[in-house]
Design a protein around this nucleic acid. Sequence first.
DNA 1: GATGAATGAGGCTTCATTCAT
DNA 2: AATGAATGAAGCCTCATTCAT
Lengths: 240, 240, 240, 240
Amino acid sequence: MPRRRGAFRPMTSTQRQLDEMQQRVAEDSLQAGSSDRELTEMKRRLIVERAAGVLYEKGYGRTSIRDIAAACGMSMGQLYHYISSKDDILYLMHRHSQEMWHQHLSEAGFDQITDPVARLEHGLRITIRYLSEQRDLYQFIFTESKYLDREHLEEVLEMDDQNVVGFYRHLLSLIPDTRLRGREAELAANLVSFICMFLPLRGWNLKLTDSTAVDEAVDFLVRFIFRGLGLDRGPTNGEA
Amino acid sequence: MPRRRGAFRPMTSTQRQLDEMQQRVAEDSLQAGSSDRELTEMKRRLIVERAAGVLYEKGYGRTSIRDIAAACGMSMGQLYHYISSKDDILYLMHRHSQEMWHQHLSEAGFDQITDPVARLEHGLRITIRYLSEQRDLYQFIFTESKYLDREHLEEVLEMDDQNVVGFYRHLLSLIPDTRLRGREAELAANLVSFICMFLPLRGWNLKLTDSTAVDEAVDFLVRFIFRGLGLDRGPTNGEA
Amino acid sequence: MPRRRGAFRPMTSTQRQLDEMQQRVAEDSLQAGSSDRELTEMKRRLIVERAAGVLYEKGYGRTSIRDIAAACGMSMGQLYHYISSKDDILYLMHRHSQEMWHQHLSEAGFDQITDPVARLEHGLRITIRYLSEQRDLYQFIFTESKYLDREHLEEVLEMDDQNVVGFYRHLLSLIPDTRLRGREAELAANLVSFICMFLPLRGWNLKLTDSTAVDEAVDFLVRFIFRGLGLDRGPTNGEA
Amino acid sequence: MPRRRGAFRPMTSTQRQLDEMQQRVAEDSLQAGSSDRELTEMKRRLIVERAAGVLYEKGYGRTSIRDIAAACGMSMGQLYHYISSKDDILYLMHRHSQEMWHQHLSEAGFDQITDPVARLEHGLRITIRYLSEQRDLYQFIFTESKYLDREHLEEVLEMDDQNVVGFYRHLLSLIPDTRLRGREAELAANLVSFICMFLPLRGWNLKLTDSTAVDEAVDFLVRFIFRGLGLDRGPTNGEA
DNA sequence: GATGAATGAGGCTTCATTCAT
DNA sequence: AATGAATGAAGCCTCATTCAT
């Protein structure tokens, strides 16, 4: 696999998967049809991961395709094999951000929780902490999305509504105590998803220097949301 | 209410005032020194108001100085008499947005309220409704600020911290019931200022078509914040 | 006399003369014809003196008419009454530089010297020291002249040939020992005038920090020129 | 002879070499790494040569990047692949001018001369004649250098001091007769380098129409310098 | 007369995208 | 297939000069 520019880069999981993929492609190029699509998907993942650094640092508008290609260790030509325009990268990052979140929820054992209130509490806790850790990515996603062209934008908004807001919409619907109905349920789901973005978007204002400070902030936010929703009994065990 | 830069001047019909100003300048050019500064201030206000349209529509990055000059009915040269760079416009809009908010608070009778809890409630209610009405402006301010160059950015962040967060910081400090201290007080002030931006930033997701729907949303948000802060008794009695 | 921008500026001789001039004009405006020309001449002198600072600092190309008008304490309109274009200032500075030099020669007692060799020696000594003191002005003149438009340029070149080179041409012609004839005489006069510019043009390379260092450099140059011309016996008295 | 930057490469017909280079690149793109750098170097040389015409004629300040790109037969975009700013061209021309001079010295057999006095004499003779022939280039270099931004300017001044003044500094140090020490040695080296610029900078004043006239001028200057340095015996005997 | 706001062409520089090699 | 040189429109900003007041 050609990687042109010197510096060693620790292999991300995507990178490893990509290697295996290309290996497979080389060995068995008969199933080219499906492999091509997988390869493309893999390369796109690689692009998103590698492009992230420059994009966070300089912002979407100030980062050139040259910069991105360099950061990806690709030629511009190769880059354009996997994306159709610069905007495409923004779209891919959006998709990536949601995939990452879902993956993280899953890895954190969210799926094993069955009690609705506990699901909400842990969903929030995991999410808020995670978004805070990935502040760069989610801040980027939030502030740059609006520059997508109409086509990409609609896709992204729908994705957002289905996956993100939908997540909370569903969680809340399982908790009868809240008495949120109709428009209020919708407001609540949107508001909760919004508050989860508080740390990425406003975190720089607080000085969350160490892990404890982040923990406290997460606690505060979860308790705030629970109380706001009228679920004061929520995070009952211990910390309310 | 802390306001850092010079005397506030209510200004809804900038154009009219500008005309009067130029009239006055023509008639009485002896006080040229002070008029110059006022004229500049007036023109800047005009620029901010006129530029707003294009900026909201296309975004800061995609709007050229030529577009802005055209929208302001000025030549580029004239525009640069009143601003020193494109970033300057962003800065002026920031300042403008804060002045507008303070003016609106004032016009809505906020200053006459003395009870701390009532002040908080009405401060929130007025602010949230107002930000929702001026969705374009505040969404723009929020998402574009990060593109300011370092110098302007620092000024803006400080302005924000002093005027906006400071507003809530002060309001909350007057309510002993919340038991918010130190880091939690800081978190709370920041979070409340953040939640007030919910409608401008996420409002498109809800369908707030009529005034009633907005009222309901405002109510919901105020109640959510009060409960979140542990002030459940707040909005129910007294003057809501 | 209206001077608009604050800071006090010690009155140059030109300034004083200008005041008297305007006084006279006010008192006796009947002789307007000749006074007008004198006033213009005086104002131009003032412009040249006041503009010098900005011009040296930023260079001709990077200094705007606004800068110059500000430095002169004039409005742009007034400035354009006395000059016809930006280039005109360059021309005026050239003329000024020659007038200053002649005046300095005269003040330094050059006119009283009759012995040809002594005249040459002192002419050089006075000139080189003077040009070194006025390094900014003469460096500016030298490096910017070539940007004059054709009309001004020709005038300047002719002025230079007549006044500057002509000075040395004449001095050398009075010294029979040099045996410089025809083309060599012309070369010598030009070369000597060129070497006099050494300190303004290359002085930054040497570290002429104190007056003694400048003295030594002047001595060195005069002796170099004398020897170069074959006039080794020249600066006989003392310092050769 | 001190030369600070990389190996020197004689280059009269840049275009021809460039063609060969591109040919080679096409044929053998494996050594792309090193070829890239060579190609860049070559293109830069081409730019310097092609830009020279417009630059001499209009001056650096009055020549636009568009003019330069057109003169180079390139698009503006391509031009900016090889230079990083307009100032860069000035810097490249400076470097070019020194390389050309060194090359010319070498081609004229300067390196074979061992006797210090003869080295000085021939160094001067070759240099003065050469600078006279390349009047446009060296006049340009001399008068425009001051417009470089600080970074480039410092580099250029250091280059000048090391290569040009250093050349004479070294030559003079080999001739014990001159008795130049310390500050005088420094003055002398600077002055000699300055006098060598006489023909490019003041030549237009003399009418050096034919080769004989130039020869005479060169002779005159060399003799003047020798006498000035107190080396009267120099050019007369030996190999003049 | 005196002012300085206004013009708008033109300055330098960047960059998404293509396409010859 | 893969490359990256090339394009050239468009970006932000400046400024000599004019002219309405």
